[in-house]
Amino acid sequence: MKSSLTFHKVVVGILVLYLLIPLIGTFLFSIAGKWDHTILPENYTMKWYIELFQDERFYDAFKRTLFLIVMSVGLSVVIMLPTIFIISVYFSKWERLLQAAAMLPYGIPPIVGAVGLIKLYSGGPIPIAGTPWILIGAYFITILPFMYQGIRNSLHTVNAVQLVDAAELLGATKFQAFRTVVFPNIISGILVSTLLSVALLFSEFALANLLVGGRFETLQIYLADKLNSSGHLTSAIVITYYSVILLLTGTVLKLTFRKDKGPIMSDKKRILSFFKKIFRQKNTALEGEN
């Protein structure tokens, strides 16, 4: 029995090492002064970070990425919240359709999406290819599955339909009911999917590069451009960027932990529900077939 535990320890140890070495290596590289013939750097320095934070281009790229994220995630919340609410309360027969539309982007890789977007928006009545506006539209679709799941689940959890019925019985209008009863109750549930979407868009490269490229340099495009220049500086960018991602996903995990009882359970549930959703989608297709 004991030897088998050793086996598991070795397996997990190797896996963790394998997963962490690239991260640790990049981090060390970003604070290393001279490092070419030793196992660990000979000396450490912060000059790469100082250089990075004095780089106007980095700030500009960061600001552009933030602009895209705020616009598309904001739009998504503003549009999806009423849409999902209205459909689940008044047009429940269309729920399947909504789900299909919301989950479809999950199956389309960005590279395929980009092909049609370029065709549709270069020339024609709305020539927005090459401008940030096309990216906002594309990102709206990219985060659709996450936002849809998050919002729908929170509406279900708080029994939004019954809440509105109750509020209406007490004399509130629908809008009042939504604004004062439903909205405050689901805000924390939406926060999780919002943060996930932000993290997702932070690391989005394919669409940005294909649809807009250098004309609107986002963080990822800036990074791709810097790949071939100073390695130390680029690793400082990578670490800065990854810290932001960690902060976002860390907050997501914490928020999910707080809501459920045990952290393991919640994480398991989150992943399970993610998994189930993929299959539920298929089940609906299956039912349709029969």
Partner: peptide, 16 residues
């Protein structure tokens, strides 16, 4: 680590 992908990941492998 599942968030470590794309350009940053490739870069990391290049320097290693």
């Amino acid at each position: 680590t599942s968030n470590f992908e794309g350009i940053p990941l490739s870069f990391s492998y290049i320097i290693l």
